[in-house]
Amino acid sequence: MSAPPAIRVEGVRKVFATGGREVVALDGIDLEVAAGEFVCLLGPSGCGKSTLLNAVAGFSPPTAGRILAGGREVTSPGPDRAMVFQEYALFPWMTVAQNVAFGLEVKGRPAPEIRETVDSWLGKLNLLDFRDRFPKDLSGGMRQRVAIARVLAIDAPILLMDEPFGALDALTRRNLQEELLRIWAGSGKTVLFVTHGIEESIFLADRVVVMTYRPGAVKEVVPVTLPRPRDPSSSEFNALEKRVTALVMAEQARHERDERGAPAG
């Protein structure tokens, strides 16, 4: 008997009204993410992958259809679906330790427990030496580590990641990808990870969900069965990358045609 899916997206449609006209951002999305699974949403900009993630997070409800997380319908943001943003979204007036403690304080945990949890996560992410620094004193990579520690500290079963490594240089990105996999492995956490990086998605995910450009829909779901740690220079990796690239480029071409085409769209 299999466990119920951690995330279940049923016939989700999302329409934005901008400047008097309607844009269908998502249409007919059906998706199941199993508990403990790592799934990447991949597609060109404008394919609605972030829109879908925001809907799962509860920031922006779908126009039609519904989303279930842990068996319950999503109606608002909640700490069971912790989000890591591309812009880090750290609170600049709080130190590193205060940022990581925030979610626990909100939950009303006792102070000694908060301190212990915070220090344990800061340790695991190599941040202990920075616990009393303010975010402005940290590099982009360090800030994103803090943001990851902040969501891990509240022990959410589902992690939503919105292009979290998009603004980082290649080396830092690879470092954080490996760290994320290390923490995820055996944690039982479900990860829904938005990216436009083809290599990144194959490096990380159990399944890559390739999305179509406008309206956003699921074009193809590509399972990645390569054992971890994955070697991006291996021939299997390359073959897969080639296949996914072909899928994404077809959508990218539609995106570019759209940009060049009539301004009315």
Binding site: P79, F85, G103
Partner: peptide
Amino acid sequence: AIHLRAARNLGAS
């Protein structure tokens, strides 16, 4: 707005 979203996401009232 991103700080509001982050706080809401972490369960803040």
